[in-house]
Simulated scan of single mutants.
Amino acid sequence: MKGPKQVQCKRAYDELSKDDGYRVLVDHMWPRGVSKEDLPLDAWKKELAPSKELHQWFGHEPARWAAFYQKYHKELREVPEALDELLETSAGGVLTLVYAAKDREHNNAVALKQYIDDLIT
């Protein structure tokens, strides 16, 4: 499958890097305390964020991580057009999934990266 050569995750509060490539916010809500002018993005893909119900159930509880990403991956399979568009747009380059969560290991961007990595490898 065609897609980016590299996928990485970055908090919305992290500094911009020249190596970020195509930057996409993958949260339903805009990050708190950040103006739209201060967050350089190429796209905001709300349709790739977990459902409100799943997000609330998860609550960024590490103990729920495995169940969360499995349920989230199921949701992602229901929006193939949005995912295909993202993969096509970022093909051959670096894709940076931008998120707002404090937990750098247990969040929707990390779960989305896992899903994309499985698709393109």
Rank of each mutant, 00 (worst) to 15 (best):
K2S: 10
K2V: 09
G3F: 00
P4A: 02
V7N: 00
C9S: 08
Y13L: 14
Y13S: 14
Y13G: 11
D14A: 15
E15V: 10
E15I: 11
E15A: 15
S17L: 15
D19I: 05
G21H: 07
Y22S: 02
R23Q: 03
V24D: 07
L25T: 02
M29D: 14
M29P: 00
W30V: 03
W30N: 05
W30I: 04
W30E: 03
P31N: 12
R32S: 10
G33R: 04
G33H: 03
S35I: 10
S35Y: 10
K36D: 09
D38T: 14
L39C: 09
L39I: 09
L41I: 13
D42R: 03
D42G: 12
D42Y: 07
A43C: 08
A43Y: 14
A43K: 13
W44L: 11
K45M: 15
K45E: 15
K45S: 15
K46W: 02
E47Y: 09
E47H: 06
L48T: 12
L48D: 06
P50R: 07
S51D: 04
L54Y: 11
Q56S: 13
Q56G: 04
Q56R: 14
W57E: 04
W57R: 03
W57C: 08
F58L: 07
F58P: 01
F58K: 06
F58H: 04
F58I: 05
G59Y: 10
G59T: 06
E61W: 08
P62F: 09
P62S: 10
R64C: 04
R64L: 14
R64Q: 13
W65G: 00
A66P: 06
A66W: 05
A67P: 00
A67S: 13
Y69M: 03
Y69C: 06
K71N: 14
Y72R: 01
H73R: 06
H73N: 02
K74E: 15
E75I: 13
E75Q: 15
L76Y: 03
R77D: 14
R77Q: 15
R77G: 07
R77N: 13
E78H: 11
E78F: 01
P80Q: 11
P80I: 09
E81T: 13
E81R: 14
E81D: 14
A82E: 14
A82N: 08
L83G: 00
E85G: 10
E85K: 11
L86M: 04
L87S: 02
L87P: 03
S90W: 00
S90H: 00
A91C: 11
G93W: 07
V94A: 08
V94E: 05
V94M: 11
L95E: 02
L95M: 09
T96K: 03
T96G: 04
Y99R: 07
Y99D: 05
Y99E: 09
A100D: 09
A101H: 09
A101N: 09
K102N: 13
K102D: 11
K102T: 13
D103W: 03
R104S: 15
R104P: 07
E105S: 13
N107C: 06
N107Y: 02
N107V: 06
A109G: 02
A109N: 01
V110F: 03
V110R: 10
A111G: 05
A111T: 07
L112F: 03
Q114A: 05
Q114R: 08
Q114T: 00
Q114S: 07
Q114L: 01
Q114N: 12
Q114C: 01
Y115H: 10
I116N: 00
I116M: 00
I116S: 00
D117P: 01
D117L: 07
D118Q: 11
D118H: 07
D118C: 02
L119M: 13
T121G: 14
